[in-house]
């Protein structure tokens, strides 16, 4: 579903990603681990087209999308949530989700109808709101809701586009244990045919939801395999994980 071939990105002499080769099958849940500065978010930015790779290619459902714009990739089913909330702060939670759904359904540029009153959009918003547990905050302005709700909305917006591939950049960043468990349930409840790539530091969550784990270090893939193999890898313990078993 999503594949990178020899993806390389450098800023001057600094290599941020080096020859990254990933291959995600349809419905696969893969977690990317790595210490700070390993190039995880830069990899995401290349995948969605926010920055261009120096070399290598990106393929989505067999199509080379390396030179496509961010919007073109999104229209082909690639959606992401951000590590730092990237919301429509002046709008309500409902309007945030509705706008995302409307654009994905091709109703974001018409001049006659209000997409927020469109039955298909409303249905999508309700489904996503239930999935990310936003039911009670739907009509609240984003500026008035808690940080945890904003994190849920961050993921909800990405889901409202009904993507084929969902990239989640540290969805539990900054949230408490209870909210983290909520995300855990959310990830478990996602449709099984949805391909998910997650950057995550919560080890419990990572090992529980992941079908496969990729570890980046200094921009290179140093591990790519099953969660159990990752747990037992001495190399990973040394470069990043430490004693996660005690976590």
């Amino acid at each position: 579903m999503l594949e990178t071939r020899n993806l390389d990105k450098s800023f001057g002499a600094i290599h941020v990603t080096r020859n990254v080769a990933l291959k995600l099958e349809k419905g696969e849940r893969r977690v990317i681990l790595g210490p700070n500065g390993a190039g995880k978010t830069t990899l995401f930015n290349q995948l969605v087209g926010e920055i261009q790779p120096s070399s290598g290619s990106i393929h989505l459902a067999g199509e080379d999308v390396t030179r496509l714009s961010v919007a073109d990739r999104a229209r082909r089913g690639l959606s992401r949530s951000y590590q730092k909330n990237t919301l429509f702060d002046g709008l309500t939670v409902w309007e945030n989700l509705g706008l995302a759904a409307a654009i994905a359904l091709g109703k974001g540029t018409g001049l006659m109808r209000d997409p927020l009153h469109d039955p298909e959009v409303i249905e999508t918003v309700k489904e996503v709101a239930a999935l990310v547990n936003l039911g009670r905050s739907l009509h609240a302005p984003v500026a008035a809701v808690s940080y945890g709700v904003r994190r849920q909305l961050e993921v909800g917006i990405a889901l409202a586009t009904r993507p084929k591939v969902l990239l989640m950049d540290e969805p539990t960043s900054g949230v408490g244990p209870e909210m983290s468990r909520g995300f855990h349930r959310l990830l478990k409840n996602l449709p099984r045919d949805l391909t998910v790539l997650i950057i995550e530091h919560d080890m419990d969550l990572a090992f529980d939801v992941a079908d496969t784990i990729t570890v980046l270090n200094y921009g290179e893939v140093v591990f790519d395999g099953l969660p159990e193999a990752a747990r037992n890898s001495a190399l990973l313990k040394e470069i990043y994980l430490g004693s996660w078993e005690d976590a």
């Binding site: 969605v48 926010e50 714009s69 961010v70 919007a71 073109d72 999104a74 229209r75 959606s79 992401r80 951000y82 990237t86 919301l87 429509f88 702060d89 002046g90 709008l91 309007e95 509705g98 706008l99 995302a100 409307a102 654009i103 994905a104 974001g108 540029t109 209000d114 997409p115 927020l116 917006i157 586009t161």
Partner: peptide, 17 residues
């Protein structure tokens, strides 16, 4: 609706397609 969205967060709207 999209124009208002652009005013609030153009980057995110691009990422939505």
């Amino acid at each position: 609706r999209s124009m208002v969205g652009l005013m609030h967060n153009e980057k995110r709207l691009r990422a939505l397609g």
